[in-house]
Design a protein around this nucleic acid. Sequence first.
DNA 1: ATAGGGTTAG
Length: 619
Amino acid sequence: MFLNLLRSSGNLTQISQIHAQIIVNGLALHTQFLSKLIELQSVDYARAVFNQLPSPTDYSWNSMIRLYTVNGFPQHSLSLYSEMLKKDHKPSNFTYPSLFKACSTRSSIEKGKQIHAHVVKFGFQYDLFVNNSLIDMYCKCSCMKSAQVVLDEMPESDEVSWNSIISGYVRVGEIEKARVLFGEVPVKRNVVCWTSLINGHGRKGKLNEMFRLFLQMLVSGDDVEPNSTTMVCLLSACSSPSDCKLGNWVSLFIDVNQIPVTTILSTALIDMNSRCGDLDKAQRLFDGLSGKNLVSWNAIITGYVQTARFEEAVRLFDLMQTHSVKPNEITVVNVLSACSGLGALELGKRLHIYLGRNGLDLNVIVAAALVDMYTKCGRVTDACLVFVKTPNKDVALYNTMILGLAYNGHGSESLAVLAEMERNGTRPNDMTFLGVLSGCNHSGLAEEGRYMFSDMVKKYGLSPKIEHYSCMVDLLGRAGYLYEAFELIQNMEISPDSFIWSSLLSSCRIHRNIELADEIAAVIMSSQNPNSGSCILLSNIYASVGRWKDVIRMRKLVKEKGDKKPLGVSWIELNGSVHKFVVEDVQHLQSKEIYEIHKFLTDQLKAEGYVPTFDCVSS
DNA sequence: ATAGGGTTAG
């Protein structure tokens, strides 16, 4: 009778009345009753009700333990279990599944092992549900050996046992082991089983094999229908723009087969479309999503950040908060990255404060985003503070710091950070050296740069990419080692691009070496397709020595190519809002005043004797 | 009453 009343009851008054009756009659506390209390109130309220029970039954203890676990309070679940034992209340086979779920993190595995011993002590080691939850716990803690022992020793296993262990091997990346078990499954392979294996291949980037398995599943004798989760796995594997076609095929499959589009599936579709660069489609999906959650907001914000549409990203971030969705670490990392792109220091600082105030995890990824933001906004000291305080630094964080120091002109400090990372046993990679070399370049440390370049190859066995060569050519060229730079280009195992030649030409101009410029010109002109940048540089060099015929020849070449450079854009943040400026643009509300002040400043400079150089500017 | 697969960050 009470149960039916509970099912239909909607508000707390009714619940309380039923509750009173239950207590009067000395009945056990029912899960559905407690669940309803949580729905209307909180776990604390449910606990208060539990505490009032004169003599809680098995049922009541198990329900309360379970509620703590499913509502995200695993530690409470465990301490209630201790209390239960202290009060000499015997656990039942129903007690353990939620306890093992509560121990499904790496940090709680020791506790889980202890409770595993209780299972044996109380004689539940043959219970299917208990063993299945044990397998799941060991898998979630990456203890595959223990999980395998439980599976091998249980008297009978079912689909759930095998699905758990297969997904466990997928989780730890042992895809081959997962495949072997998949082939040995003694029970029916259902959609969960197939989906786990499909997911495993997707996560390893084996897209061909993944789709082959998917098609195999459709025609297999297992009579399995793919569902939303299967689609999510397929979509999340299509992570690079080259997988666009596959992603769209999955999209179409969902439509044609009317797979239910859950919030998670919709989020995966948003993510896939933004990775393919179709932000409009992603935005439309997002707009149409009724159950937007934190992850969906993060997915769309990520889309805008990764296509460099920073202003839109920040706008969505503000909008998200007006919808009372609280940002997490992932949100903050993305918006910080937008701040780096915009130079939005004020917003960046607010995010830094937000992280601390809300107890978010300052992990290495967050730290790198902060360091990047501060250095791109010119706040090297603030970046260093974050960097120094971060434990367990990884190579990417080191690289961010080194590069940040580099383009702020702190070359020797970036060398010091490299030395520190070597002391800490973090192996530098090619990005590290790009940072260090560019630091040497920006600070004119030619000798150190040369030394680092040779270390990179000889000490670490890294093969330089075109970016490293460009940096070295620029470094040597600026320092006047023009022929060394020229030789470096000629000895590269990669073919030089136009930027590297432009860089050397620019050095020839600085050091007024016409001979080498002529030599380079010969190389460039005989090659494929000289770019207009190089031609402009050459024309400037010829102009400086009065070789007007050559100037005209170069200008003609540039005109013929007629390629347009993208307009230069700059941003400035003022009182927390970002202002954007494009060359010659009059979009800004105060553009008239801005140009007036600009003219005033230019006039002042000229009055002080400033003469703008136009020899680098052309056409 | 108890168990299994999935989405977002450098």
